Simulated scan of single mutants.
Amino acid sequence: MTASEGPAEAGGVVDALEEHLLGARPQLTQREVAEQAGVPLETANELWHLLGFAHVPDDAVAFTPADVRALQLTSDLIRLGVLSQDRQDGLVRTWGRSFARLADWQVALLASVATEMGSDATEGLLAVSDEVMPRVEELQSYVWRRHLLSASARLLAERSSGTASMLAVCFVDIVGYTSRSRTLSDRELVTWLEEFESAVLSLTVDRGGRIIKNIGDELLIVTDSPEAMAEIALELTRRGADPDDPFPAVRAGVAYGEVVTRLGDVFGPVVNIAARLTSVARPNSVLVDVGTYEALTGHEDDDADHHASDHASDHAGGYRFRRLRRVSVKGYSRLKVWSLLPVVPDK
């Protein structure tokens, strides 16, 4: 709301957007929506909450026929066995989180564009709903289908091989994020983080990896091969150490092994170890676990007490490893850890 825009004007914009985006003004209570969809009221309330929306009294007129259709579709998926009870919470909650974040970003972006064009909130946001949203919706559907194809291909490859999902997992953390964030405005901080994520995304995708999620100033990345992850982690720390590169200094922890994937996220000890290694890594360094070390070198660790000695690998891209003293972190005592180093070119 701008200084010249009162509650009545802002409310009018919301009412108009509601009609544009949902196809009608609110005309139904939640009880009426549940009845028309043939869904128990308790189920309707639960799904509404899981999607991340605020509680609405049963007698409040806050819904449209679009909400009835959404409940009918959900009921169909349950009837078809796609959404069993144990899958409903996770899937619907994931939708709610993902779309809420996406919507916040899109509205902020488009409102900023409208302001730059000299439009007020009413004209700008209504123009967005008329001109931009259909195109955004179509593009989102295309991107979603493309990712469905990629995810399906990965699943089929795993099923045909008959093995568990073996992934390299890496957490990348910005060094000095707290102190840097204090010197930036909200807009500058968002821009800085988006530029960081964009740079990491480009590097990751080029090497066949995927960004699973961001957690504040930290990104979680996975790749199918440890070699690809080693390249990604070393390039990120190299850029962060370059004083002429605006990319921030980072630290990284990499682990390799069996990983459980569910609803686009990853779980298991391998993920936890990667996170713990990142927390103890020095700025501009990459720490790896025993799984990564063995995968990149092609031989098993002999568990000898090689404190801070170098082991050159004759494959895996020619990386060097420096064995570090074992570390104890939350949940894991005396982890085997190596510092991953690029090979210095011969002069």
Rank of each mutant, 00 (worst) to 15 (best):
E42D: 14
D289C: 07
L50R: 15
R79I: 04
D58S: 08
R323I: 03
V286K: 12
N214D: 06
R31V: 04
S160R: 01
Y256I: 11
V107F: 15
L335E: 07
D86Y: 03
L139M: 11
W192D: 14
G291Y: 02
Q72S: 14
S119G: 02
L324Y: 04
L73V: 14
T297L: 06
A10K: 08
V259S: 02
R180A: 15
R187G: 03
G96S: 05
F196A: 07
V56M: 12
R251A: 04
D86G: 00
S225K: 05
L277P: 05
Y177M: 14
V92A: 05
A70R: 14
L47S: 11
E9W: 00
V143C: 02
L83D: 01
L83A: 00
V190S: 14
P226K: 07
G264H: 10
E5L: 15
S152I: 00
D265H: 07
N214K: 12
A316M: 02
L220G: 07
L236D: 08
W95M: 13
A121F: 09
L149F: 08
E258L: 05
R320A: 09
F63E: 06
R25F: 05
Q72C: 12
F171R: 14
A255T: 02
G268H: 02
R323W: 02
P342R: 07
C170N: 07
S141E: 08
L71W: 05
I232Q: 07
E46T: 12
D104P: 00
E35N: 04
V343H: 08
D314M: 09
R326P: 02
E195L: 14
A153L: 14
A10R: 13
R79T: 13
P246I: 10
D289N: 12
V266H: 09
D15H: 09
S4N: 15
R322A: 06
L110Y: 15
E123G: 04
M1C: 06
A151L: 10
N45A: 14
G298T: 06
A153K: 10
A274D: 12
P248R: 04
H311C: 01
R326V: 01
M117V: 02
T64P: 08
E218I: 08
E35R: 13
R146M: 12
F171K: 14
P226D: 05
D58H: 04
A304W: 04
E46L: 11
T43D: 10
A70L: 14
L335W: 06
D217E: 15
S141F: 08
A37R: 07
